[in-house]
Design a protein around this nucleic acid. Sequence first.
DNA 1: ACATGTTGATGCCGTTTCGGCAACAGCTAT
DNA 2: ATAGCTGTTGCCGAAACGGCATCAACATGT
Lengths: 312, 312
Amino acid sequence: MRFHSPAIQYFHAVRRTGSIRAAARVLNVASSAVSRQIIKLEQEVGSPLFERSARGLTLTTVGEMLARHVMNVLQDLDRFRSDVASLSGAWHGTVSIACIESLTESVLPDLIASHRGRARRVSFTTEVKGSSDVLEALSRGEADIGIAMALRHPPDLRQVALKRFRLGAVVAHDHPLARRKTVTLPQCLAFPVIHALPELSIYHLLQPLIAQLSETPEPAIQANSIDLMRELAARGVGVAFQTQLGIGRLSRDSRLVFLPLDNAGSPVWSDLGIYVRAERTLPAYTESFLQELVRELGERERRESAAYPQVA
Amino acid sequence: MRFHSPAIQYFHAVRRTGSIRAAARVLNVASSAVSRQIIKLEQEVGSPLFERSARGLTLTTVGEMLARHVMNVLQDLDRFRSDVASLSGAWHGTVSIACIESLTESVLPDLIASHRGRARRVSFTTEVKGSSDVLEALSRGEADIGIAMALRHPPDLRQVALKRFRLGAVVAHDHPLARRKTVTLPQCLAFPVIHALPELSIYHLLQPLIAQLSETPEPAIQANSIDLMRELAARGVGVAFQTQLGIGRLSRDSRLVFLPLDNAGSPVWSDLGIYVRAERTLPAYTESFLQELVRELGERERRESAAYPQVA
DNA sequence: ACATGTTGATGCCGTTTCGGCAACAGCTAT
DNA sequence: ATAGCTGTTGCCGAAACGGCATCAACATGT
């Protein structure tokens, strides 16, 4: 199905690769063909679309506008294709997900496994990044669904849902704190602590609270991997901080205990946002998975708030 | 700017005109060229897009899917163009409005006049239709903004705003009812009444209420023009029913009096919805007018509810 | 029933567009 | 300076496109 003029597709490839020759390789055409189509586009728009440097091409302002249009066109073409395909019973396609690490332990694998149990011909691509990189990948059209900390999101993204989970301390089952129902930050800081590095959003949630305390913290470990922090906590190295989302299996094995943080009587929330590009209609199979994702996270949010009724 | 393949444009023209030869005339090309592009499209999609009859072409299911995609593409191309144009200071374009008659007396002319006072290079196309025709024109991409009675709208439209106005009786200044603050339906039916025909939504608002009454109505006039009904009321022919939106000037001239309807102690609402196609980003100049329209209707809603505080 | 005017589709042919090859100039890093 | 990359350009064959004339199928009017 080659609906749209080659110029559109070539432009898209050049934008992604940042180079005409690289785009030509991806497209399996001669670089001269790509170069000419770009020049033709620029003549029709009446303004240059890229700034040429010796290293490659960068979008101009007008180029970014066209990129937005082209992305809308190609993503909607995908949706159209899937609509036509599903008309003849073929329900297939690839769902591309960009998400933060907290989801990789149980939420995402559970969901993908169960979804593929029902829809075998739907493939998945998942990429784990930091929150801001998730949003960026979404904006650039490199992912269909994004899950990230709910900070301010650019206007070209739409927040489909917002789920809040309690930030808590994670300790080994034989840790002195393990028998408590909740913990306060000072209680945790009396023990060795596994801190998140600034690239993790947990850092930005806890830092302001820690800064208010005047105590001298115990010697601490710092890490940028939720996975690593969790495993360190399981080995009794110290107290880690994260949401309950990331400790599903280890919590079931009774090796780890999750203790909701109590900050002067009120919970510490970690807000998780689900995002999609605003100017876009998702293919049916993607929309279907998105609904399940929202439902599942909503379910976990509900279960958590039932397990740990709000203190304040 | 001929970005997109001729097939897309030809398909769009054929869909609108319902005929290959008519589309060819509009496009200033030979009909054979159009015919071939359609056939090529059908081969690429792998399914016929039109059903050929001797009279012309009708979209198939797949055709309608493609029509949706093509509409998204072409409308987004328009937006892109206006974005590029506004970058070089040129703020121009055409805002296409489909609305029901209630707006034509004062809301729309006021708004368009004041908007053009500020943005001279923005043109307007307005088409007055019945509520369901307004929504249909919007779905077909024949208008940018639709204003209609807020009944159930198809999922491809988005309700930008919902404003409620009181339905009321409209009488000449020397009518026996004119000195009242509000009126009930039985009070009105004691006088000659100017009824709306079923094609107007006022009919569907009032009919259920009238049906509940057991009284024998006075001989009545029926009409399908808000304008005509209003002018008849101004001449003392009888009691008309409509919202306050349609009697701005005549009310200021003190020739007409608006009396909110009181139905068993509660107002009778007429819900006005503002709609746009959901799968679309509006050009900046259209979005700008849309905001003003929403603001203005909100303002009128506010002023009305202040003038006639709710009875219930 | 017949003629006439539509409709969309097709074969033929000139024009335009597109893409591949090779060569070029400009820049960077070794 | 050399080697390796970038994007661009001239040349030429191939593919796509559009116009004209024509066709069969159907609707309409007499």
